[in-house]
Write a protein that binds this DNA or RNA. Structure first.
Lengths: 216, 216
DNA sequence: ACCTGAACACCGTTCAAGT
DNA sequence: ACCTGAACACCGTTCAAGT
């Protein structure tokens, strides 16, 4: 709560809000309350303001969701394509990409479906990745497909990473699916350092990079 | 509209609704209206009924969303693991999996984030895939990771498939990202039969399967 | 221009009343 | 048990009034 003082109607001497403040606070509120309770009223309350005040700085709730994307994706490291071979760079990029989304568990569920439509930061990332791939000798026509395939895997993995940990548990149905249940248990013992989701991500990432190298 | 006749209050002689009818109609309404306009009122209207009547057969809107999943996933073909080698079976399974979700463009955005938590049909699919992998000599501890990695890629690809086609267009920023723009154009000419999303999916699927085979 | 206060249409859900 | 009708709390958004 930024301000508990009462405020009477009329323009205040100093602005209480700004677009950036609203977006940054939105991320905080969303991560605390979850998507269900992420309302304009809850956001306004956190900012110490009445709900309609928000509309002086943002277009509405959809505008806020779209604007939050840049805060989430700010942690993605695509600079490595300048210095490392494409396959090593891809692994680092993919891990930071997944981690950036997984750090905002509720944001991802809201952003996964909201289209990006030519956001500048995303395009800059595409440019850097494309450069890295081309410098490594990738044929022009396959670069975007390879990059998108990696992105698809990363986004799916981020959704998996924020899913409830018991999501794949057979529970009472275990006797019906013995082979799967055994495989699940065997996988748990494989590497105690990594979660089930982490293991799947690392195996898939290694496989995808190796496979792409072969199809280059 | 199932019924335009007026109906007075009180229990009708014959039931108008059932859980299955509500779920099947929900899919239809959602695919027509989109997630924004998919309301209990719109669903009730399509069924020729007042909104509160729905609550006699389903727990609420979340229950409806969860129940819709089985209708969406009904088209997934995992029977091929019984007859084909694991890598060929995986390709067919993955294509049908992505197609099933892509056939319900709005459902996927709502279902991508709703956890499955031990739904029986999903577990049966996991069992069949696990059996196929084990029969092919996969080590027990890696089966689930490989399957989940594939699922992550498939789900991400399905989201990509239903995204607006111009989502990756640089638009006015093209001069800022020349390498990416060139690669995008080169990719478009590569195979006129396949969409940009299809090309990325097919390349990624082939790479992932080949890579997994190498890491088996 | 930027805040509050009042109001609007709509949402999911509950519950009494009717058959 | 299963429908309608009326009601509830809450949602995002608009707009006049105040400074």
């Amino acid at each position: 709560m930024a301000d508990t003082l009462e405020r009477r109607a009329g323009r205040p001497a100093k602005n209480v809000l700004s677009r950036d403040l609203i977006l940054a606070t939105a991320i905080t509120v969303l991560n605390r309350t979850g998507p269900e309770d992420f309302t304009m009223a809850a956001l306004a309350k956190e900012l110490g303001v009445k709900t309609p005040a928000l509309y002086h700085h943002v277009g509405g709730k959809n505008d806020i969701l779209a604007g939050m994307r840049q805060f989430v994706t700010a942690g993605i490291d695509y600079g490595v394509f300048k210095t490392l071979p494409w396959d090593e760079a891809t692994v680092i990029w993919a891990r930071s990409y997944r981690a950036a989304f997984a750090a905002h568990p509720y944001a991802i569920s809201l952003l996964a479906t909201v289209p990006v439509t030519g956001a500048h930061p995303t395009l800059v990332m595409y440019e850097e990745v494309s450069k890295g791939f081309r410098a490594a000798g990738w044929p022009e026509a396959k670069i975007v497909s390879a990059m998108v395939a990696l992105e698809n895997f990363i986004l799916g993995s981020a959704l998996d990473a924020v899913a409830p940990p018991d999501m794949m548990e057979p529970g009472d149905f275990a006797p019906d699916v013995p082979v799967y249940t055994n495989a699940l248990r065997a996988g748990e013992g494989a590497d105690p350092q990594l979660s089930r989701a982490d293991q799947a991500f690392e195996l898939g990432l290694a496989a995808l990079v190796a496979g792409l190298a072969a199809f280059k």
